Simulated assay, not measured.
Amino acid sequence: MTSVKSVFTPVEADLQVLTENLKNLVGARHPILYAAAEHLFGAGGKRVRPAIVLLIARATMPGEEITPRHRRLAEITEMIHTASLVHDDVVDTADTRRGVPTVHSLFDNRIAVLAGDFLFAQSSWYLANLDNLEVVKLLSQVIMDLAEGEIQQGLNQFETDFSIEAYLEKSYYKTASLLANSAKAAGLLSDASTATCEQLYLYGRNLGLAFQIVDDILDFTASDEVLGKPAGSDLASGNLTAPTLYAMQEYPQLVDLIATEFEDGAALTTALSLVRSSDGIAKSRELAKHHAQLALAQISGLSPSDSRQALFDLTDYVLKRLY
Rank of each mutant, 00 (worst) to 15 (best):
S3G: 05
V4I: 15
F8A: 03
P10V: 06
V11E: 02
T19I: 15
L22Y: 04
L25F: 06
L25T: 10
A28L: 11
R29T: 15
I32Q: 08
L33Q: 13
A35D: 14
E38F: 07
E38G: 12
G44I: 07
K46W: 05
K46N: 02
P50N: 03
L55K: 02
R58G: 07
R58D: 13
A59R: 13
T60H: 00
G63P: 02
H70Y: 08
R71M: 12
E75F: 06
I80M: 13
H81Q: 09
T82S: 13
V86W: 09
D88R: 06
D89G: 11
A94Q: 03
T96K: 05
T96R: 08
T96I: 12
R97N: 08
G99K: 10
P101L: 01
P101R: 01
V103C: 04
S105A: 09
S105L: 01
F107Y: 15
A112S: 09
A115K: 04
F118L: 12
L119W: 02
A121K: 02
S124C: 13
L127K: 02
N129W: 06
N129L: 10
N132V: 02
V142I: 15
V142G: 11
M144Q: 12
D145Q: 05
E148W: 08
E150A: 14
E150C: 09
E150F: 09
I151K: 12
Q152A: 14
G154I: 11
F158S: 14
I164P: 04
E165D: 07
L168C: 11
L168F: 03
E169G: 15
K170S: 15
S177C: 02
L178I: 15
A185E: 05
L188M: 12
L189K: 05
S190R: 06
A192V: 00
A192W: 01
A192M: 03
L200H: 00
Y201R: 04
G204A: 05
R205F: 04
L209G: 02
F211S: 02
Q212R: 10
Q212M: 07
V214D: 01
F220H: 07
T221H: 12
G228L: 11
G228C: 10
G232H: 03
L235W: 09
L235K: 04
S237H: 08
N239I: 15
P243T: 00
Y246N: 00
M248W: 08
E250D: 10
Q253M: 04
L254A: 14
E261G: 10
A266Y: 11
T270A: 04
L272G: 06
S273I: 01
L274F: 06
G280I: 01
A282Y: 07
S284L: 03
S284Q: 08
L287F: 11
L287R: 03
A292F: 02
A295F: 00
L296S: 02
L296P: 01
I299C: 00
S300D: 10
D306H: 15
S307A: 13
R308Y: 15
A310I: 15
A310H: 14
L311N: 02
D316V: 05
